[in-house]
Amino acid sequence: MESAKSVMEPIAWIFQMLTGLVMILLITLHFYVTHMTSHEALKYAEVVSRVAQPEFKAMYAALLLIVSFHAFNGLRAILLDTNAGMRGRKTVNALTTLAFLLAFVYGLYLLFSI
């Protein structure tokens, strides 16, 4: 039985819960803005003008960070629940962290280039 200290696990566990809670609010807000404010909310001009506002930009950046973390940390948890995943634990940790960062950086690139 391995007992090596891992600081990643407790931090990942706590953040998975915290991001989950924040996402309930932010994704409801996101859905509300895109689907319930007006029928035009998904038009190109509308999207661009919305993203140009600093408060929306900040909201989307936060949502992006939180969702990417939650998604890839969740994937990490699923993979580590299997024998194969646990054998390659370091690889699973590294790849899911990398995927999280890639998704976040790519999303930020989109957010700041439109």
């Binding site: 190109y44 999207v47 998604a71 998704a103 999303g107 989109l110 439109i114």
Partner: peptide
């Protein structure tokens, strides 16, 4: 549902790449 939402997140980000076309035609 977690796995479905992960796949959707990737699809969503890919989809939003169409916003890079500043004429808006691809996105529309």
């Amino acid at each position: 549902t977690g796995v479905v939402l992960l796949i959707y997140l990737l699809a969503h980000l890919t989809y939003l790449s169409t916003l890079l076309d500043t004429t808006g035609a691809t996105y529309e």
